[in-house]
């Protein structure tokens, strides 16, 4: 990582709100590579990210915090490995209204296993108002089975407070966990 590059990476499944989450804290309009979905994919979201989302936050020191969002679909996993290089940590967003949210989480934990071990991760669960199950305890139970102690918070990706909470927890893990 270049000395002046500080980045956080958002990942998670299609429709979980990665682009929205980055937009809620970025001080520049999010640069995204979303494209119209052909009917090959299953989710009812109209557009999907195929390369990355990108946002920025200028810190008091003048340095920039780069915010990267990965494509959600596993087909684009080559981008995942590119984007996490030099990242401070990972923010995983899971759409609770999906067919198998815990399975989705499992895939991201597997794919980013080494990166999470080296740094840290937090999990934000979105759309819990429409889809209350699985509940938080089910997520924690699953994490416990995997021997992980990551925080899981129900969040609204549109809310700046929610996204800030995830980053605060991530930094707390990196510093004290």
């Amino acid at each position: 990582m270049r000395k002046d590059q500080i980045k956080l990476v958002f990942t998670g499944n299609m429709g979980a709100g990665k682009t929205t989450a980055i937009a809620s804290i970025s001080e520049i309009p999010v640069i995204n590579t979303d494209v119209l979905m052909s009917s090959g994919a299953s989710a009812d979201k109209e557009r999907t990210t195929v390369a990355m989302d990108y946002g920025e936050l200028t810190l008091g020191s003048g340095e920039k915090l780069f915010l990267y969002g990965t494509p959600g679909q596993q087909r684009f996993d080559y981008m995942w490995q590119i984007l996490i290089q030099g990242g401070l940590g990972l923010i995983i967003l899971i759409d609770n209204s999906g067919d198998d949210p815990i399975g989705d989480l499992a895939r991201y934990l597997d794919s980013f296993h080494d990166f999470i071990q080296e740094t840290g991760a937090v999990i934000g669960v979105t759309h819990t108002d429409d889809a209350p199950r699985p509940d938080l305890q089910m997520y924690y139970h699953y994490l416990q089975e995997r021997g992980l102690q990551l925080p899981v918070f129900p969040i609204d990706a549109r809310s700046r407070e929610s996204v800030v909470m995830l980053i605060q927890a991530l930094l707390a893990i990196l510093e004290y966990g």
């Binding site: 936050l57 200028t58 008091g60 340095e63 800030v164």
Partner: peptide
């Protein structure tokens, strides 16, 4: 540590 502090300060600016 000081980098994390700077990030947290920036995030707390409006929250």
């Amino acid at each position: 540590r000081s980098l994390f502090k700077t990030i947290l300060q920036r995030l707390a600016d409006t929250v």
